[in-house]
Write a protein that binds this DNA or RNA. Structure first.
Lengths: 229, 229
DNA sequence: TAGATTGTTAATCGATTAACAATC
DNA sequence: TAGATTGTTAATCGATTAACAATC
């Protein structure tokens, strides 16, 4: 059985937290320590590491170096993850800066737009190409995933071209659902929806009849932060 | 019982799709039509609308105007959702442009940074204030939710100030888990983790022993896009 | 040994999907 | 009526949490 999506996300986060804590390859970490860092739960950490197939020491916990190796073996393509960015508006540029440059595992291998005033220009160190060059570039430069930051109207057409070019994983910031075949994986980032949901949950969701129920009760549904404080 | 988070997200999406399809208040929509638009499933749409408490017509479907009214009653605070943005780097500016201006339901009511070269300046139409003014501004201008786009190192401190100022809902773009009390709702947007997961799932997750299993099998775990092609 | 931790199974919880009676 | 759709319950599925034997 494949490793569940949610576990993959947490493995990525564990790896980052271990690096952030400056733990070296020979350091050991307990499941409850990792759980605290991630505001999670020790049983879940152990279960995740079981899915990953790493064994700890019954008394000393898990070896950080081994953990990192195995997480990388599962998460990282052989040469790191090649990313193409579609659309170089404000958001595209921000993401370019965000994942460009410093990252050791994420590599921006292409930046595309349809605007002639952008094509050929260097943006945050990357040359913007015409979307007509997409297919050749994806294949030549080894792209694994795409980020769509075009306007909503353009997103589906761009998505279709990405799929034709062989891309099978897409992170979509355009506020529109994408129609894709079953063998393509899309993750939607929907900021407007997220804000509306957050506001609603934060003020205590009204029950369906408009009756506010048990004032003061709270909903915890954070991704990782279990949130003792 | 409160409306589940996932349902709240879909209600927000239904509303947007209805508007996108230019459906008027007196138009009717079937559950299967809404499901198609959202790449979802008709049973789920009916269930969501049941949670919302709206009844359809047994033969004619649901009235769009009524649907919008009720979705708004659940999702929207009385005067729309007031948003404060913390950190005005590239990402903060992109989000300002993204949700600023045109939106009828989301209102940016404050923009904050610690950089003296930004404080007092107008960015995408909004004046950037010192974070020292946060508490007064949140209360005077009616902020419902906050977006954190600061560097990771600054995020927890900013989060603590937001909570002290009365904010109970946070959208966090900083790549670090936030420690919050139980009555604060945080949603994490983790681009690096998302890309790693997407790349992993898209190429077919290797099983735990490194054995690739059933070549060609695919994992669909999109948020809404069920994805018939 | 005593105490603490892992590895794993079972229990719980929540979300999605299927099914179908009611009914327009 | 016949056909299609809603409203809702039951079944399924998956993820999280609890529990505890094994063991260092």
């Amino acid at each position: 059985m494949p490793i569940p999506d949610k576990t993959l996300e947490r493995l990525s986060i564990y790896r980052r937290l271990l690096a952030l804590a400056r733990l070296g390859d020979d350091d050991m970490v307990f499941s409850h320590e990792l759980a605290d860092m991630a505001s999670g739960n020790a049983a879940q950490v152990r279960r995740d590491l079981m899915e990953l197939g790493v064994a700890g020491h019954r008394k000393l916990g898990y070896r950080v170096g081994h953990l990192n190796t195995e997480i990388g073996r599962v998460l990282d393509p052989p040469n790191g993850t090649g990313v193409v960015v579609l659309g170089v508006g404000n958001l595209g540029r921000a993401l370019l800066q965000h994942i460009g440059g410093e990252h050791e595992r994420l590599h921006v291998v292409g930046v595309f737009d349809t605007d002639p005033s952008k094509i050929g220009h260097i943006i945050h160190g990357y040359r913007c190409d015409s979307i007509n060059d997409l297919e050749a570039a994806v294949q030549a430069r080894g792209a694994d995933v795409a980020i769509i930051t075009t306007p909503a109207e353009a997103a589906q057409a761009v998505c279709d071209r990405l799929i034709a070019a062989g891309i099978r994983g897409i992170l979509n910031f355009a506020p529109t659902p994408l129609q894709v075949p079953d063998n393509v994986f899309v993750e939607q980032v929907d900021i407007e929806t997220a804000l509306e949901k957050i506001a609603c949950v934060a003020r205590g969701a009204p029950a369906r009849n408009g009756m506010l129920l048990h004032e003061g009760v709270v909903y915890r549904a954070q991704r990782m932060q279990g949130g003792a404080n």
